[in-house]
Design a protein around this nucleic acid. Structure first.
Lengths: 144, 144
DNA sequence: CAGTATCCTAGCAGATACTG
DNA sequence: CAGTATCTGCTAGGATACTG
């Protein structure tokens, strides 16, 4: 996609070692990481993953739980997660139709991390809001 | 921002219990969560946080490490993280100017989770790519 | 070096309507 | 119920230029 801006070619090979030391995300391999990260951390994916980490849910349940998500975006998000092998889609041949979504094994291995992230956010929202207020009032008085 | 779409007023209060049972994100309080989540999980924040979790870095170092980020977006991202109280900004009155960014205490409490997320992505990218290929070729043969 | 200011556009995402 | 299709606006974010 965006290739390196400046020194995209000719890396000092060997910089790709896992998470060991100083990290660089400008190697080709890590471009994948950025792209995947963008996908699982997009507007709705985290929420969907966190919910499915609890238990399987059907489309309408997910929609009800994640208020504000449009039918389209939930469908799109689920299709992405399914494509990435994180979520499985099970269609029950009944009428009215019923479709269950659940985490795959791969998805489960992500589930706890995502839940941790969501839990962190829940547990620290107060402090973040405080920080914002501090920052904003500092800005205002600085500009005045 | 987007307020509840349908039933934004008149919640059955008491639905806000932490992470206990079945979760709902359509309560007012949890709207905050969504908003905060969107911010820390946006295109560049996760990467910045993960890098700063290792050690403090200056602007140009961050920019070099996160290839593909524009000067503008790195600045914007850092301003957001600073506003949220996750990152501290230290200006050294030297010439040429030098500015260090580091995680605050609050940021540190998030750091390990974010690193876990990034590590997970690094460790599972192969499997995701495989899953995508499977999905795509299944789609193609289904349409053919 | 470490930013801000401005301009501009690709594509994300909402609304709406239709289908198996 | 569980979607897909289409249209469209809005804004995130890239490119560029300028400053302390």
């Amino acid at each position: 996609m965006e290739e390196g801006t400046s020194t995209s070619l000719g890396y000092p090979e060997g910089t790709v070692s896992a998470w060991s030391d100083a990290h660089q995300w400008d190697t080709r391999e890590d471009c994948e990481v950025r792209q995947i990260l963008d996908r699982i951390a997009d507007k709705w994916s985290l929420l969907v993953l966190a919910l499915l980490a609890e238990r399987p849910l059907r489309f309408s349940e997910l929609r009800r739980r994640i208020d504000g998500v449009s039918q389209r975006m939930l469908a799109v998000t689920l299709r992405h997660l399914e494509r990435d092998g994180l979520v499985s889609r099970t269609v029950f041949p009944v009428v009215p139709p019923r479709v269950d979504y659940a985490l795959t094994e791969l998805g489960e291995s992500l589930g706890s991390t995502v839940q941790a992230l969501v839990e962190w956010t829940e547990g620290h929202q107060e402090r973040i809001i405080e920080a914002r207020n501090r920052y904003d009032s500092a800005k205002v008085s600085a500009e005045a």
